[in-house]
Design a protein around this nucleic acid. Structure first.
Length: 563
RNA sequence: UGGGGCGUCGUCAAGCGGUAAGACACAGGAUUUUGGUUCCUGCAUUCGGAGGUUCGAAUCCUCCCGCCCCAGCCA
């Protein structure tokens, strides 16, 4: 990780950890874990949790953060997901070293714990069906009804549970339940299910098991087995904390981690729920989990985001217990900040307007020097060919410019970046449509490089590309995935109706020749247009594809809007 | 109408009884061979509301209002 990342701002969780270390709780140890379920790809919300958990661990000598797959529900989980999750965590810049774990590694141990709970008279096999359990759970305001199987003897429970494991029963015939309190005001405590029968092969344990532990049972015990000190999770698990503590107390384990909840990340103009992201992928509303419009780590990576920018973003948003929605502009700020410092500058034209330099000799080519990054002279210079016929951006010319427009116009002189001052002397229009199709300019040979010996000023500098030398490429221009700040605003409407039909615009792109050998993943700033990266999936040397990561800040666009 | 949480600038977020940090956004201005960057400047007399305690309250107490989570054999 880069050293110039400022030390993390403090937050309530770091305060708790610091206090615990000060008081020598857990012998001063700090051990966290990032526990994803491998049922989807990681998104920017997970990045917040990853940065928190791994971040805290690295802030203490000997602090550790485990990567643990919470793979207790084989019907939803796949290896493809575990691989992508490992890739994403690594890419973000974190290292779990030799601490890669799976809840499924503990299945045998977990089973033993369950047996122990039965022996303690704190768990029983319930033979009510799904529907009956639901009906007897009670409601928010009414207590539940105790299961008729609640009083089975320890022996009977032991025998039944063993037979459940042995595969003697069909799915749903029995479950193992904790014997707690059907009248608890906390519904989670009304004899929660601990184990269910599921004849599904597991991506790691295959068909070894036909009973699988529930989250509440597996999670706290996995934390305990791994000697986690601080078990950080999101707010919706707050109600489950009572059960987390109950199980660990009932089993009298020697490590009882502290669960601390924080608010999950919400971002405007997108969705961050795995269920909804799966829906977008499976419904083909995007090209896949790594579609550059997706808020997934793999989507952001393909879009051109850097790990550092995401880490900085996560640091800036903070950690608190309040439900909140972060402005996506903050994410965009984070990537601009990083790329401004590191991305080489190049030129390319999105909407070409042909320009002929009348007084520039036909057939000659000049090689001009251009800075690779004005922010960093160490990045050197490159040569750009200049010739008689060029392309500039259509937006950079107006025949009848308004007050504040200071780009090219008839009779006006502007600078072509790193080249010459040019003056527009003639406008060629299409006879039918009246559209401007070509400009004729003259150049001032004394302004080579872009400055005039007599100190004459111009009000604009345009990017350009030599027509004969330009490389034809493709640009993919992305916009917000949704048109609404909160796509879930209308709760009874499908969030997909708020999808932005213009979230992707594909357009030809004429780029300077130095880009001919651009490699997949390379990031650039196309001057005055934005930051782009070479697509890692669809780009090839003969057909370059550039993804627009984010535009540059555009104050001219703001001025235009106001007028 | 049970239980658990949360309400500080447009958006995040510090603050923990001594008189409202910071970031993004926004608005001005300066510098600029990117209308980019950088640099200044401005941006909550007020902390969901009402009472109370106190010399002093965003911080403590009371009541009220609003929002979120929980009734999967999901996590």
């Amino acid at each position: 990780m880069s050293k110039n990342e400022s030390s993390p701002a403090s937050d309530f969780i770091r305060n708790i950890v610091a206090e615990d270390v000060k008081n020598n709780k857990n012998g001063g140890r700090v051990a966290t874990r990032f526990p994803p379920e491998p049922n989807g790809y990681l998104h920017i919300g997970h990045a917040k949790s990853i940065c928190l958990n791994f971040g805290i661990a690295t802030e203490y000598d000997g602090g550790t953060c485990n990567l643990r797959f919470d793979d207790t529900n084989p019907s939803k989980e796949e290896v493809e997901y575990v691989e992508s999750i490992k890739d994403d965590v690594r890419w973000l810049g974190f290292d779990w070293e030799n601490r890669l774990f799976y809840a499924s590694d503990y299945f045998e141990q977990l089973y033993e714990y369950a047996v122990q709970l039965i022996k303690l008279g704190k768990a029983y096999v319930c033979s009510l069906n799904n529907e009956e359990i639901r009906k007897t759970r009670g409601t928010l305001t009414e207590p539940g009804i105790e299961s008729p199987f609640r009083s089975r003897s320890v022996e009977e429970n032991l025998a039944l549970f063993e037979r459940m494991r042995g595969g003697e029963f069909v799915d749903g015939a029995h479950v193992l339940r904790a014997k707690i309190d059907m009248a608890s005001p906390n519904i989670v405590m009304r004899d929660p299910t601990l184990y269910r029968i599921r004849r599904v092969s597991h991506h790691r344990t295959g068909d070894n098991w036909c009973i699988y532990p529930m989250y509440d049972f597996a999670h706290c015990l996995s934390d305990s087995i791994e000697k986690i000190t601080h078990s950080l999770c999101t707010l919706e698990f707050e109600n489950n904390r009572e059960l987390y503590d109950w199980i660990l107390d009932a089993l009298d384990v020697d490590c009882h981690p502290q669960q601390i909840e924080f608010a999950r990340l919400n971002l405007n103009y997108t969705v961050l729920s795995k269920r909804k992201l799966v829906e977008l992928v499976q419904g083909k509303h995007v090209s896949g989990w790594d579609d550059p419009r997706m808020p997934t780590i793999s989507g952001l990576r393909r879009r051109g985001y850097t790990p550092e920018s995401i880490r900085n973003f996560c640091e800036r948003i903070g950690v608190a217990r309040r439900d909140s929605t972060v402005d996506i502009a903050l994410l965009e700020f984070s990537i601009r900040e990083d790329l401004n410092k590191h991305a080489p500058r190049v030129m390319g034209i999105l909407r070409p307007l042909k320009v002929v330099i009348d007084n520039f000799p036909e057939g000659t080519v000049e090689e001009l020097d251009a800075l690779n990054n004005p922010e960093d002279s160490a990045m050197g210079t490159r040569k750009i060919p200049f010739s008689r016929v060029l392309y500039i951006e259509q937006d950079d010319f107006m025949e009848d410019p308004p007050k504040k427009f200071f780009r090219l116009a008839p009779g006006r002189e502007v600078r072509l970046r790193y080249a010459y001052y040019v003056t527009c002397v003639n406008v060629v229009k299409d006879g039918q449509t009246g559209r401007v199709v070509e400009l004729h300019c003259t150049y001032d040979p004394d302004t080579r490089g872009g400055s005039s010996p007599n100190g004459r000023k111009v009000k604009a500098t345009l990017h350009w590309v030599s027509a004969h030398h330009a490389v034809k490429a493709e640009a993919r221009l992305y916009d917000h995935l949704f048109v609404k700040e909160n796509p879930n605003e209308e709760k009874d409407m499908d969030f997909k109706t708020n999808l932005n039909p213009n979230s992707l615009k594909i357009t030809p792109f004429l780029v300077e020749p130095s880009l001919a050998d651009a490699v997949p993943g390379a990031r650039y700033q196309f001057e005055r247009l934005g930051y782009f990266c070479v697509d890692t999936v669809d780009s090839s040397p003969s057909a370059l594809v550039f993804n627009r990561t984010v535009t540059l800040r555009d104050t001219w666009a703001k001025i235009k809007k106001k007028q």
